[in-house]
Design a protein around this nucleic acid. Structure first.
Lengths: 329, 329
DNA sequence: TGCGATGATGTTTACGTAAACATCATGCAC
DNA sequence: GTGCATGATGTTTACGTAAACATCATCGCA
C-alpha cells in the first residue's frame, strides 16, 4: 500500500479511501491511485483488513457430509447467496458423527476466521461438546431441534410429509408404510411424526416404520421387507435416494410400481424424474432455504432486529408416475 | 491476549507460545496460561495471526456447481483432507459459466484470504478473464486442460473410458455408442476421445456421438435417440446420472437392459448400485483425488520441490447387471 | 567457588490497514 | 480584504499476534 501511495504521490490513507470507495477523493487523484494500483498489481491484504475492521466477511458452514443431495444443494444455495452479499463460505466438515468428530471440527472452528456459522446438523450432537465459537460469532441452525437456543431456518417438513401421505390415502390406499431417515435426524423425525399423525387422524392403522440412513442402499434393504409384505400397497420414503432403493427392491421382487405399490419420495432431486418410474415426491426449495439462512445470519451479525418472521419454507407435492390407486384386489 | 497474560501473571509472548504449542515453556506456567485462557474464554484472533504469519491456512475452491455428484464428492474429499492438514476450505461458487460469472468470482477471489486455489473447472474459461490471484497464491487445476501453466491433478479418464468400451467389445458387441458430457468439459472430451480410439483400434465403426450435459434429463433425451436405433446394443455414458436417464428412456421404449442393450456409466456414485438394473460403471476414487489436490497445493505453497510424480488417479471397472453379451439377433 | 552454557521468560517491534484527528487550500460572505 | 466554512488530503495510531532479540536464573563443571 505504501508503494502505491508513493507511486501515486499521495498518502496511504488516500489509497485506502480509493480502495474502499469512500467519497471525498477528487477524480484526478482517484485515477492516479487506481493506475498505481494496477501498475504494481496491488491487492488489499484481507488479513489486515479483517484485523482492522473486526469482521471477516466469511460464514462458516458446518456439516457431516456433502454426499446427501439435500446437503450439497443447501450448501450450494448458501454459497451463492452469501457471495451476492459479499460474504465467502468456509466449509467445516465433521469427520464423523461422533463426539470426537464434532469436537475436532469445533476446535478448528474456534480458531476460524468467521463472523457466523450455519449448522446443518442435529443440534444435540453439538451439545456433546462445548460449542466454542469464535468470539461474537452468530449461529443459525438448519432444520434441527435447536429449541430456543439458536435461530432455526426450517423447511415445512411436516406439511410435506402430510401432503405425501394424504396424496396416497386420497388415491385410495388403506394405509402407508414409511421408510424413515436415521433416528438421530430431526428432519427424519418430523417427517415420520407427520406420517403417523395423518394415518391416525384418518383412523388408519400405523404399520411398523422402517429405518434407513438416507442412502439408496438402506432404501433397498427396507424395500426388500416391503416387497415381502403383500398387504403393503403404498410407501412414503423420507428422501428420494431411499426411494430409489425401494424401487429397485420392489422391481427385483416382481412388485410393479405403481400398479402393485405406490411410492412417494422427499426432496425432488433432479434425478427423481428419471427413476423407473419417475418418482412422485415432495419438492423442497433449497435455494430459498439457502437464502433465508444467509439473510438471517447476516441480520444477527449486524445486530439488526430479529429477522422477519419464522415462516417455514414451503414444500409441494410433485406428482409423477410412481403413484396410482391401489390394485383392485 | 494481554488479559490472559495478566491473569496468568506472564507476558503475552508466553501466552503466544502456549497457544502455538511452542516448546520452552515450563509445565506449571503452561497450565497457568491454559487456565487463564479458559477462564477468560480466550480465542486467538485469526486475522491477526494471518497478518503476522503471512498465511491464512485456507484454500479456495472455485467451481460452477455442486449439483454434479463428481464435483460435490471432490469438494468433500478436498475439505476433509485439508482439515487434516490444518487448512480450511473456502468455496467460491461461479454464478454461471459465462465470462461475467467467472469474472465476478475472480474479482472476489482477488481479495480473498486464501493461500492457494483449487480450480474445478475448465481452464479455458479462466483465460477469458485476467486471473487475478491473491499475491503469492498458488493454483492447482483438477482434470482440466491447463497445459503447462498450472499443475494438474488428474484422474485417468482415458483409461477409464477404455475399460468401459473394451468391456463392452469383449462381451461381443460390434460397436458402442457414446453419450458424452458437455462440449466445453475437458474430462468429457477425453472420455469421448478414448471411446473413439478404442473403437478405431478394434477396427469397429464409430457411430455418431450423442451430447449431454451431465444431467439425467439430458441422458434421457440421448436415450430416446438410442432406443430409436435398433442396431445399437451397447452404450457408454460419460457419467452415471446420464446413464440413469438412458435407462429410463430404454425402459419406456421397451428395450430391455441388459438383454437388448448394455449400458456402462462413469463415476460409480453410490446410487448407481440401485439403478434398474444396477449399473456397470467406472469407479473413480474421489477421496484420492481430493488428497492429491491438497497435497500438491500445499507443496507449492510451502515452496517445496515439485510434488511427487504426475501419476494419474486410477479408475476401475465395476461390473454390475447393466451389461451382458448382445442379443443373438 | 566461579564462570559459561542452557533454558525459561520478558520486551520490542512490525505485519497492512483504516479510523480519528490534523492540516491545508480554496472560495464565499461580509 | 478578512475570516470562516468546506472539502481534500496527510499524519498518527491501534487492531492482536509472533518473530527476534534481551534478560534472567539455574546448573554443571573446572
Amino acid at each position: 500500500m505504501a508503494d502505491v501511495a508513493r507511486l501515486a504521490g499521495v498518502s496511504s490513507q488516500t489509497v485506502s479511501r480509493v480502495s474502499n470507495g469512500h467519497p471525498g477523493v477528487v477524480d484526478a487523484t482517484r485515477q492516479q491511485v487506481l493506475d498505481a494500483m494496477k501498475e504494481l498489481g496491488y491487492r488489499p491484504n484481507s488479513a489486515a483488513r479483517a484485523l482492522k475492521r473486526g469482521e471477516f466477511r466469511t460464514i462458516g458452514v458446518i456439516l457431516f457430509t456433502l454426499a446427501t443431495t439435500g446437503n450439497s444443494r443447501t450448501v450450494e444455495a448458501i454459497a451463492n447467496h452469501a457471495a451476492e452479499q459479499g460474504y465467502a463460505i468456509t466449509l467445516i466438515p465433521v469427520a464423523s458423527p461422533t463426539q470426537d468428530g464434532v469436537l475436532g471440527a469445533f476446535t478448528r472452528l474456534g480458531e476460524l476466521a468467521v463472523d457466523g456459522v450455519i449448522v446443518i446438523m442435529e443440534v444435540h450432537l453439538l451439545d456433546a461438546v462445548a460449542l466454542e465459537l469464535p468470539p461474537g460469532a452468530q449461529v443459525v441452525v438448519v432444520d434441527s431441534d435447536a429449541g430456543d437456543r439458536y435461530p432455526v431456518v426450517d423447511t415445512d417438513q411436516a406439511d410435506g410429509a402430510r401432503q405425501a401421505v394424504s396424496h396416497l390415502l386420497e388415491l385410495g390406499h388403506h394405509t402407508v408404510r414409511h421408510v424413515s431417515g436415521p433416528a438421530e435426524s430431526f428432519s427424519a423425525g418430523r417427517r415420520a411424526q407427520a406420517w403417523r399423525d395423518v394415518l391416525t387422524e384418518a383412523g388408519r392403522p400405523v404399520p411398523p416404520m422402517l429405518q434407513g440412513d438416507w442412502s439408496a442402499e438402506s432404501g433397498y434393504r427396507a424395500g426388500l421387507e416391503i416387497a415381502a409384505d403383500p398387504s403393503c400397497t403404498a410407501v412414503f420414503t423420507a428422501n428420494d435416494q431411499m426411494a430409489l432403493g425401494v424401487l429397485r427392491a420392489l422391481h427385483e421382487r416382481g412388485r410393479r410400481v405403481p400398479e402393485d405399490v405406490s411410492v412417494v419420495g422427499f426432496d425432488d432431486i433432479p434425478d427423481a424424474v428419471s427413476y423407473l418410474p419417475p418418482l412422485t415426491t415432495i419438492h423442497q426449495d433449497f435455494a430459498e432455504m439457502g437464502r433465508r439462512c444467509v439473510d438471517r445470519l447476516l441480520h444477527q451479525i449486524r445486530g439488526e432486529a430479529s429477522p422477519p418472521g419464522r415462516a417455514l419454507v414451503p414444500t409441494r407435492l410433485v406428482t409423477r408416475e410412481s403413484t396410482a390407486p391401489p390394485p383392485a384386489s
